[in-house]
Design a protein around this nucleic acid. Structure first.
Lengths: 344, 344
DNA sequence: TTGAAAGCGCTAACAA
DNA sequence: TTGTTAGCGCTTTCAA
């Protein structure tokens, strides 16, 4: 800044012929203090005339509150379409007259501690810890006793509320969509738990989605013909579906772990001359942009990024929510054109 | 925060048996002040022992600098993959020990003024004004005389540097890629200037890309068979290319305005039994995720989001750059599989 | 080489 | 209803 802020509250007070106290009261709009209407008007006029703007730094030093929330993410801003998280958070923060300081770390460890300290040094009123994909984390100890909200992650034993997508219910919905269309057999899950070498136990989203899916199917005495574990990308989706096709397994419906996997599946099916949804129905997860570009457009369960961002900052202000509860946000079903009854 | 920061510098000084002045000098690591090694050690030990952390708010009040940069965007965080801009900016800011306060407005006007004021009240050292797509803006008057950098936008007459993608050169490169493969005719531009009803004059990116493209072609005595003006999405790409195919125009190469348009073009070509790149070559712009998922993968000119974010904050620190210069960032060519020589 | 003291701009007891 | 005064935690003359 070339010219620092000029006019201070003292200037306004002087110009209005009142004390700083009076000026402070009217300028910060405090209730319950009785100031004559005349003084109020004079202060306001003076402030207006001088172009007064409060110095938030000075105010914060005194009040120990900055109306600022720190966000520490492990790359959420990078994930395609997850800028939605930020937008939701921004929105909710703006409604409460707060600002967001966004930071990013490559993961946990010393870098994360440094970032958290930078935030804490600036006296942020709270910090939101966000992860790119749903997983367990252990918050840095600097955060103990601070107001914290976990966004897209869980930290058992740490005293802070979490916001995660309701993956189990989404899995159930995926199953129900297929059942409702009349599917009972020839159903395969592509991507599965993502039980691949890097994540042998599967990942949170995978495990929950599969659990919900199996549950819904079983409730109607139906079941999966198989679960193909692979990376959740277009490449693997293409390869695995083609393999299934080549092997000649009966295929009537696919539950793909992500829209990227679905994209690969579309390519493999098209190549094999099978049409979606007449020959093969597809239900997917995430609702990335591509889901609506595909033809037919993809029926998918949307990751509620925007809503999650919003909820996270709402929880910052929710005094009751201090207890470490897990808030599961519904993943809305986007019904489009990739599901139809199986061929008779 | 449940427990405010405890230990102050006064505590450290007292514990170390020195004055606050001494403590301040060693803790803030100021050069050119001669403090005995003994005092230094004692202060550092005390700080460590007490778990001292500086209060940035107090420091800022005194020094009038916050090591914080405000970012005002009109939705850049929302655009797919443009979270990259934020990541680049975050990176460059972190290198200089600065933090970013990110905000968003629906556009210009009073909302923007409010946001800018909120930032200025908090004494941010600079403000980066960012737009979702490249365009002209008029910065709010509150920003006059402040340190400002324009990211992805231009404000003629406003004294601040701009960072924009080098669209003209990208257009030239697109042309050269085709020429190098041997294309001379049957070349169509899909999307063009985006001279559609909503933007009858075309948009910045469209105009510059077309200009560069035509220039490169003309330099080799080649030319476009036609420019199809349409919205830059998959839907329109599909429709317009299909129309071209239906009309039976000779088609050997396509320059698509965005990867989304290319996506639609792929669909239309596949439907018509034309293969990419054997029958028709495609060069595209943007390099969204989808570009690498397509088969064949798409040859495209990448929007240098990450680099742009980085440059913007670098300019904040570049004293020389105060003059209102326009910094054009190269759009790298991603050569993949969608261009081949025309069939003989 | 170190310390005393003033003060950044604001809020909040406490008095008047 | 309003003013005096004392800080918030830090930096920075200036003097010792």
């Amino acid at each position: 800044m070339t010219s620092g802020r000029r006019v201070t509250m003292a200037d306004v007070a002087r110009s209005a012929g009142v004390s700083p106290t009076t000026a402070s009261f009217v300028l910060s709009g405090r209730e319950g203090v009785r100031i004559s209407e005349a003084s109020r008007a004079r202060v306001r006029a003076a402030a207006e005339a001088l172009g007064y703007r409060p110095n938030a730094t000075a105010r914060s030093l005194r009040t120990k509150t900055t109306k600022t929330i720190g966000v520490v993410s492990d790359g959420i801003t990078t994930t395609p379409f997850a800028g939605d998280v930020v937008r939701g958070a921004l929105e909710a923060a703006a409604e409460r007259d707060h600002l967001l300081i966004i930071t990013e770390t490559d993961g946990a460890g010393p870098a994360e501690t440094a970032v958290v300290n930078a935030l804490l040094d600036r006296q942020t009123d709270a910090v939101i810890l966000a992860t790119m994909y749903t997983r367990y984390v252990v918050p840095p100890k600097e955060l103990h006793g601070r107001r914290v909200v976990l966004l897209n992650c869980l930290a058992p034993g740490f005293d802070a509320p979490s916001v995660v997508p309701d993956e189990i219910e989404a899995g159930r919905t995926a199953g129900r969509v297929l059942l409702a269309a009349g599917h009972r057999s020839g159903i395969w899950a592509i991507g599965g738990h993502q039980a691949v070498p890097a994540t042998p136990e599967g990942i949170f989203a995978g495990n929950e989605r599969m659990r919900g899916l199996q549950e819904a199917l079983r409730a109607e005495r139906a079941m999966l013909d198989g679960v193909v574990e692979c990376e959740w990308n277009a490449e693997d989706g293409y390869r695995e579906v083609r393999a299934l096709l080549t092997a000649g397994v009966p295929l009537r419906a696919l539950v793909c772990s992500t829209d990227r996997v679905s994209f690969g599946a579309y390519q493999a099916l098209a190549e094999a001359g099978r049409s979606v949804p007449e020959d093969v129905s597809i239900v997917s997860f995430d609702d990335q942009d591509i889901a609506s570009w595909l033809r037919p457009a993809l029926t998918t369960l949307a990751l509620p990024h925007h809503e999650m961002g919003r909820r996270a900052v709402e929880l910052v202000f929710d005094a009751e929510a201090q207890v470490s509860a897990v808030h599961r946000v519904t993943m809305p079903l986007r019904e489009r054109g990739s599901v139809a009854p199986p061929r008779p």
